[in-house]
Nucleic acid binder design. Structure first.
Lengths: 343, 343
DNA sequence: CTGTTAGCGCGTTCAA
DNA sequence: TTGAACGCGCTAACAG
């Protein structure tokens, strides 16, 4: 009889060694069964499995990682953990990873270079097995530098290199389609709320807008372009700017849905009806866009699929392989915020 | 001269031992400087710091964790990584953790008990130092069981226990205030789109609604209550249900903003104006609600602050301490979707 | 103040 | 097939 009674449920921390002991085998045997890296006799296997079940043993993923030189985790550098846009990508990544035993570490850069660098350092010091970078402000050079330490998949830009894969949606084509849609509806005075001028996506979208105008023989009027920052408040400002400059327009192409939401509000505040007085189209097709009043016409981006693809490609990269991805093209979703121009 | 030239940048994996060697000290000394757990002579410190800088050394957080018995990570069990509601809480958690060296592991339960259990197991096998549970379907018993292994902070329910802290916003009071607001505007036929009947939050909100009616001497009419699931599509359904049952009402209190968005759309589709024909109020004050047309009156919940508080309390719990939290009360935000009833 | 010695919990040699 | 021994990178206990 023990002199002191054991505490009811002391730490509840069961180690591989304890399993080995209660099963009456060596730790290596338990390990072999866990990893499946070698044959083990049936009786020992049974004994071990029973011990595992009885003790409710759960392998320590970190110790395993230390021994194997991997952490079974990947880093995801996003810009805002609560962004309705990137959120869809995060979902895609998460869903794709379920069942692989690999966990995503989400960190936010807040569109701030310094923050992004710190977060990357953090990820590296946790020895993530790979990293997914969702746009942001890191330079290609910096990405390449990080890629010497860890495989990287970058979304939102195009670059090649060892240990690097990239993927992006065709912003140019999407913007072209959006503008074309407005033109087909008879609009000629089409304003554009552009995104940040140093953001590759918005630059492409501006190009697509110009190209569509050009093809339709509509002269480009720089006064109809106003810059915003992809967030709602800047969409409000943009419309106000346009109106205060007394620009006349019958349609607005906002470079993303969030600025379109802002634009919608500004128009409402001025008693300008959508779509009766002004047609409005966005870009992204956020989940919320079908609940805008009126439901927002926009360009659907396959963001969820992009997240999935990024995860899939990264896993391949980690295993030392390569893989091709083809993302669906951006597609027009014509809802109720755009309509034919009344003569 | 070396016989073979070193590869340009082989693995780039620098260990503490390497730092110790190039600095000409023992590993323990390096460790001491890193952890700050003891005094070290200035010259050795300088040598080590120089070596760290020159080698660009980054400590392996996992190895450190293994040695210390902690992982410097916490788990966060949310329901959907892309939920506009919980997203704010995630931001709060993330921001509160910045600088502590502790990283949050976000996992999603999808309002599915089985998923939640699996995710919790996953977190435990990664030996997180603590867990924050954002509502969900785990029973109090299950939470208590997990708490034997790891400190837990639960948001959205009230429970006490060893290793457990809880915090929640006062749903009853918030719902009471929302209903009261409508009553003050002269409404008496007030419909309520309730949340899931097995969800504590929505039960409380329904109670608050009934209480406010009662206080105003308005008889409770069960026909004016219809159940939804906190998501947009169910808000659309709810309004349609109400209308098809030919219920007359001049105001709607939706149990959260997302169902209010759905309700708004359904009303729009039927040409029922907000707020001219029907007043509409939500609950949560999601960031998007100020961009609804018309801007949505709602009850502001301090979700970001809740996230911050949860993280703060958990850190205390991990250190073995306790702490009191007091969350701000839910507050009425009267915007433009509610107005005085015209006689 | 500092170096040496032991682990943390695993996987993986190497013999047997 | 199996066990013993070693190491992953780091911290902590123990001497000195």
């Amino acid at each position: 009889m023990a002199r002191h009674s054991e505490p009811a449920a002391p730490q509840e921390i069961v180690t591989l060694a304890m399993v080995a002991e209660t099963a009456g085998v060596s730790p290596s045997t338990v390990s072999r069964i866990l990893t499946g890296h070698a044959r083990v006799s049936d009786d020992k296997r049974r004994a071990v499995e029973e011990a595992i079940a009885r003790l409710n043993y759960q392998p320590n993923v970190l110790a395993r990682g230390l021994a194997q030189g991997r952490t079974l985790s990947i880093g995801v550098l996003t810009q805002d953990i609560n962004s309705p846009f990137y959120g869809e990508a995060l979902r895609g990544i998460e869903d794709e990873l379920v069942g692989t035993g690999i966990v995503p570490l989400f960190v936010s850069g807040h569109w701030n270079l310094q923050d992004e660098i710190e977060r990357m350092q953090h990820l590296l010091s946790r020895r993530v097995d790979g990293v997914i970078v969702l746009t942001g402000r890191l330079t290609d050079e910096q990405i390449r530098e990080y890629a010497r330490r860890v495989p990287i998949v970058v979304a939102g830009r195009t670059m090649k290199g060892h240990n690097i894969a990239s993927m992006r949606v065709d912003d140019f084509k999407g913007a072209h389609r959006a503008t074309q849609h407005l033109i087909e509806l008879g609009h000629r005075r089409i304003a554009h709320i552009a995104g940040p001028q140093d953001h590759a996506d918005s630059v492409e979208r501006l190009k697509g807008y110009r190209k569509a105008l050009e093809e339709a023989g509509i002269p480009f009027d720089p006064k109809l372009v106003v810059y915003a920052d992809f967030h709602e408040p800047s969409g409000v400002l943009a419309i106000n700017q346009l109106l205060e400059a007394r620009q006349s327009f019958s349609a607005v192409f906002a470079s993303n849905d969030q600025t379109a939401y802002g634009a919608r509000l500004a128009l409402y505040q001025r008693n300008i009806r959508v779509p009766e007085d002004v047609s409005l189209i966005g870009f992204d097709d956020l989940p919320g866009s079908r609940y805008v009043i009126p439901p927002l016409s926009t360009i659907h981006q396959p963001v969820y699929e992009l997240g999935q693809a990024a995860a899939r490609v990264l896993l391949k990269l980690i295993e030392g392989g390569k893989s091709r991805v083809s993302l669906p093209e951006p597609q027009l979703v014509a809802r109720e915020s755009t309509r034919r121009l009344r003569p």
